[in-house]
């Protein structure tokens, strides 16, 4: 009974995770500029990947594999914001924000960008 429940739950998580990954990709394609795309990639990507790994943990029925999958999901949640943050920072320093429409940009006022990005 618990085995069946874990399997069904794992299947639901697998499908949900795939859908979030797909929506993240659609977001990266459709959103208008780098920073808004970054929202889609970092959130939907991390949640999608994490959900798929948790699904593996649920359907494996093996303690060591489940533990590894959960650690993998935690790793993903820790690193995705770090890489998004690095990329956002570098792009802002490179002057990317001049090509986007933003309603306010308090960072540009505080530190003017230092270079230009290659197209």
């Amino acid at each position: 009974m618990t085995a069946l429940l874990a399997t069904v739950l794992g299947c639901i998580l697998l499908l949900l995770g795939s859908c979030f990954a797909l929506l993240g990709a659609v977001g990266v394609l459709r959103l208008p500029d780098l920073y808004t795309r970054m929202h889609a990639a970092s959130k939907a990507g991390a949640v999608g990947g994490g959900m798929i790994l948790v699904a593996v943990a649920l359907v494996s029925f093996d303690a060591s594999i489940a533990l590894r999958a959960v650690i993998g999901a935690a790793f993903l949640l820790l690193t995705t914001p770090v890489s998004a943050h690095l990329l956002a920072r570098v792009s802002h320093r490179g002057g990317y924000h001049t090509q986007t429409t933003m309603f306010i940009d308090e960072l540009a006022a505080a530190s003017p960008s230092k270079g230009t990005l290659e197209q």
Binding site: L23, L31, P32, V47, G48, M102
Partner: peptide, 23 residues
Amino acid sequence: AVRVAAIVMTPNIRAALRPGIVA
């Protein structure tokens, strides 16, 4: 994740956005 997914699926995507950087 759900909110980003909802924004991605709206037909008129620019109207749903009001981006900015806040200190």
